[in-house]
């Protein structure tokens, strides 16, 4: 019994033999890849709502669908919504396709935020605009102020991530984008935040 041929020594008790066989068989049946035990993407709707709450004026949420590479692709990013059957969260497990879509969509969004340094693409909340305007003076020292960077980070990320993540992000941009133009830097900053697991994944 079993791959190694081990035989349990239980005398002639068939019930116990059955129990052992069951147990061995159940081991073989353990599903590999515990998908239910892995965090999933929050979904496009949740991400859009988060960004709107933090960045958009009150009562004027963003319509971020323009950044999706294709209509109805939002369902491939994690969704509860369906019709005609009990609902369960679908398509939220990271795979190559939804990572590609997230990447494309968030690149577009990040670009729009960066471009807002010169010509506003999105209607932003006053407070975020203030932060953005300061950041858009990059690489001027005022843009690199800790307060400005932290404000930008918490505006986009919220408080989803740890301080360590913020520090890594800040240090990276202060180092690698020290002299880069503002539009590109702001876009890259936004992109780096939104591609972080703390932003995209459910707890």
């Amino acid at each position: 019994m079993g791959p190694g041929g081990a035989r349990p020594h239980l005398g002639a008790n068939p019930a116990m033999m059955r129990a052992l066989l069951l147990a061995a068989f159940s081991l073989l049946l353990q599903p590999t890849g515990a998908m239910a035990q892995s965090s999933q993407f929050k979904g496009w709707a949740a991400v859009s709502r988060e960004l709107s709450i933090r960045l958009a004026p009150p009562g004027q949420p963003f319509d971020l669908d323009e950044f999706l590479p294709s209509r109805s692709m939002d369902e491939l990013l994690g969704t509860w919504t369906t019709f005609g059957t009990e609902h369960r969260f679908r398509n939220g497990t990271p795979n190559a396709l939804n990572m590609t879509i997230w990447h494309a969509a968030l690149s577009g969004f990040a670009k729009a935020v960066g471009q807002s340094c010169t010509s506003p693409r999105l209607m932003f909340h006053e407070r975020f605009l203030t932060t953005l305007h300061k950041l858009c003076t990059w690489p001027a020292p005022a843009a690199k102020d800790e307060g400005v960077l932290l404000a930008f980070w918490t505006s986009v990320m919220g408080y989803n991530a740890s301080e360590h993540e913020y520090a890594a992000w800040r240090d990276f941009f202060l180092r690698e984008y020290a002299t880069e133009p503002a539009t590109e830097t702001v876009a890259a900053m936004t992109f780096a935040i939104t591609m972080n697991p703390s932003f995209l994944l459910n707890r």
Partner: peptide
């Protein structure tokens, strides 16, 4: 759970 999800993100990002 988050770490497991991040691992999947990583593998998926590679592809």
């Amino acid at each position: 759970r988050m770490a497991a999800g991040a691992r999947r993100m990583l593998a998926s990002l590679d592809q």
